[in-house]
Simulated assay, not measured.
Amino acid sequence: MAYVTQDYYLKEFHGEAVQGADFPSLVERAAEIIEELCMYRIQESNMESYSQDIQERIKKAICAQIEYLDANGGSDMDNGADIQSAGLGKFNYTRVSGNSGNQEQSIYAPRAKRILAPTGLLYRGGRCL
């Protein structure tokens, strides 16, 4: 069972429309990325151990990550490529490199980070609820 369903994504989160065929891969990749962002403190199997507020924030963070992935090239966004600039429909990707260092687009949705910030799940020092 996934953290979120397409119905939740559309009706509760009010996310941008995603092609139905793309949703399963997007939700899987988004969940993997959010688990990584939280240093694997969250898993579908332990969701019940969190308060309702934190469970809701985790779901919303995954939805924000789905929206971010879809807007930036889909579930393969983190495969990496040395693309300077590309765009087609919703997809817009730029990777800049030069003598002053590399700037790359983060795989983590900024909105997902903001949603999870008050949960303590992003804190490296330990599990704070």
Rank of each mutant, 00 (worst) to 15 (best):
E56S: 14
E56Y: 10
E56M: 03
R57D: 04
R57C: 02
I58T: 08
I58S: 03
I58F: 09
I58L: 05
K59W: 00
K59M: 04
K59C: 05
K60C: 00
K60S: 03
K60N: 10
K60F: 06
A61D: 01
A61V: 08
A61Q: 03
A61T: 09
A61L: 02
I62D: 03
A64T: 08
Q65P: 08
Q65W: 02
Q65D: 11
Q65Y: 03
Q65V: 10
Q65E: 10
I66C: 15
I66Q: 03
I66W: 01
I66K: 04
I66F: 05
E67S: 13
E67L: 01
Y68W: 14
Y68F: 15
L69D: 00
L69E: 00
D70E: 13
D70T: 05
D70L: 01
A71D: 06
A71M: 14
A71E: 04
A71C: 10
N72R: 15
N72C: 10
G73L: 00
G73W: 00
G74M: 05
G74K: 10
S75M: 07
S75C: 08
D76I: 03
D76W: 02
D76Y: 09
D76T: 12
D76M: 10
M77Y: 13
D78I: 09
D78V: 06
D78F: 02
D78N: 12
D78L: 05
N79H: 11
N79F: 06
N79E: 08
G80H: 08
A81H: 12
D82M: 01
D82G: 12
I83R: 13
I83A: 13
Q84S: 09
Q84L: 07
Q84Y: 07
Q84N: 10
S85L: 08
S85V: 11
S85T: 10
S85Y: 13
A86F: 14
A86M: 14
A86K: 15
A86W: 09
G87K: 12
G87T: 14
L88A: 15
L88W: 14
G89I: 00
G89Y: 11
K90D: 11
K90F: 06
F91P: 05
F91H: 15
F91I: 12
F91Y: 15
N92E: 08
N92H: 14
N92I: 01
Y93N: 06
Y93F: 15
Y93G: 05
T94W: 01
R95D: 02
R95S: 07
R95A: 08
V96S: 09
V96F: 06
V96T: 13
V96N: 09
S97K: 12
S97Y: 01
S97L: 00
G98I: 00
G98W: 02
G98C: 03
N99M: 00
S100T: 09
G101Q: 06
G101L: 01
G101D: 04
N102E: 08
N102K: 13
Q103K: 13
Q103E: 09
E104Q: 14
E104N: 14
Q105A: 12
Q105R: 15
S106W: 08
S106N: 15
I107C: 07
I107V: 14
I107W: 05
Y108T: 11
Y108G: 07
A109V: 09
A109L: 02
P110I: 09
P110C: 11
R111E: 09
R111W: 05
